[in-house]
């Protein structure tokens, strides 16, 4: 499997990552180097093998469905690039 420049551009869009046009070509080559290398996984017969879902055998923990924390709006806003009162400010989303 190999990817072309257009695929890399599309994936970058999916990942919301601005990759400058000049970086697309070298990035495509780097990714293809990696994809060619992982191709070797194709030679393993994985029929009937269950995909791993948890590396340590344990049942997911349950807890009571009640509020145990909160009221930390000031802390949440402390690192905001732009904020007003307890709101995060972003460019206009809805016309």
């Amino acid at each position: 499997m190999s990817v072309d420049k257009d695929t890399v551009r599309r994936v970058a869009k999916l990942a919301r990552l601005a990759v400058p046009e000049s970086r697309l070509e070298p990035m495509t080559a780097e990714l293809n180097g990696i994809f060619q290398w992982v191709e070797m996984l194709g030679e393993v017969n994985v029929e009937g093998v269950a995909p791993m879902t948890s590396v340590v055998a344990q049942r997911l923990k349950w807890r009571e469905d009640k509020i145990s924390d909160g009221g930390q709006a000031d802390d949440l806003m402390a690192n905001a690039p732009e904020g007003e009162a307890h709101f995060f400010v972003v460019p206009k989303v809805v016309e």
């Binding site: 990817v3 890399v8 994936v11 919301r16 990552l17 601005a18 990759v19 990035m27 780097e30 990714l31």
Partner: peptide
């Protein structure tokens, strides 16, 4: 994201997304 992440992190985000 494009300006904040370095080259290796971007590479891995792209692999993962793909």
């Amino acid at each position: 994201r494009g300006e904040g992440f370095g080259a290796e992190v971007q590479r891995r985000i792209l692999i993962g997304t793909y």
